[in-house]
């Protein structure tokens, strides 16, 4: 498979690993867009990322000119193989001091990044895949919701989403109608907001950041930024891992693995309103990596 030549994707910031799991000073090896990368987080928390090479055993042996753009954000190290924008998309809630901020896990998944985003946006699978947690029969209907492509923010926004959930989070004490907002601020990242069981004026934030290893394999980084004063970290992580573990076989059995962007390629049942907007947005951007572009 040829390495990535999609300049839209090359010029983005991509996550490569959780800072919490990177021992200070230790070199981590990973892959991004078919390139082998090494990264290291200093004791000061500042990440250094470079294209792996045998003569560099640590960041101090990599001259500044050979380093890739790097930044720490939302608990992860981000880098780029091209010229990334000055800013990463904002998640203002991340700065709120009373939130629990955790990397629930980083999982390897045999799926394209866009297929994983599309599944993340789809509420229709809740009762069938996340039975008795995020959904339950007979509450299977996805009620009408709104989707827009925000031009000034260059992101997809789905609002007024509602779903009945038996166990919306670790802080839930029973079933509830839960409000959702979804954002797709990056072709391979999505952020969702759902009603908090502990404070009705605020929302829990859960994000999925996909690190494309190649067109059909990702590392999925799961960020939690939730309101829960009682549960231990590992209990909060376990809840999200359970949910993602249920999605995993579904994601890995998608066919074709790359997301078809031609509006006629798949039936509207699989591609609901937010999925249609997402596919259109990727087409407009000219994304070709991880997708099957629409015939011109």
């Amino acid at each position: 498979m040829a390495k990535c030549s999609d300049t839209v994707i090359l010029n983005l910031w991509h996550p490569v690993g959780a800072i919490a799991e990177a021992a200070p000073g230790a070199v981590q090896e990973t892959v991004l867009l078919e390139e082998r990368l090494s990264f290291q987080v200093g004791v000061d928390g500042e990440p250094v990322v470079w294209r792996s090479r045998p003569d560099a055993r640590g960041a101090d042996q990599v001259p500044a000119a050979d380093r890739l753009p790097a930044r720490g954000a939302y608990g992860y190290v981000w880098t780029s193989l091209g010229s990334p924008p000055a800013d990463l998309f904002p998640i203002p809630e991340y700065a709120e001091p009373d939130r629990r901020r955790l990397n629930a896990a980083t999982f390897g998944v045999n799926v394209s990044a866009p297929r994983a985003i599309e599944n993340f946006l789809d509420m229709g699978h809740f009762p069938y895949v996340h039975t008795d947690i995020l959904g339950a029969e007979p509450h299977t209907e996805v009620k009408e919701y709104d989707v827009e492509i925000s031009v000034d923010r260059d992101e997809i926004l789905a609002t007024r989403c509602r779903f009945f959930q038996p166990m919306a989070s670790t802080a839930s004490d029973g079933g509830a109608d839960v409000d959702y907002v979804y954002r797709v601020p990056h072709p391979y990242c999505s952020v969702l907001y759902k009603s908090s069981p502990v404070d009705e004026s605020r929302r829990d934030v859960i994000a999925i950041f996909l690190q494309p290893l190649d067109q059909e394999h990702v590392r999925a980084h799961l960020l939690l930024c939730v309101l829960d004063e009682n549960s231990e970290d590992k209990v909060i992580k376990r809840f999200q891992q359970t949910i993602f573990g249920q999605d995993k076989p579904i994601l890995e059995n998608q066919f074709p693995k790359r997301l078809p962007l031609d509006p006629r390629a798949e039936t509207p049942i699989r591609a609901d309103k937010s999925a249609i907007a997402y596919r259109r947005w990727l087409s407009q951007k000219g994304v070709t990596y991880g997708v099957i572009p629409a015939a011109a």
Binding site: A18, A20, E21, A105, R238
Partner: peptide, 10 residues
């Protein structure tokens, strides 16, 4: 008793 096997290596 939940154990944080991954990523925590508990």
């Amino acid at each position: 008793v939940p154990i944080d096997f991954y990523p925590g290596r508990e």
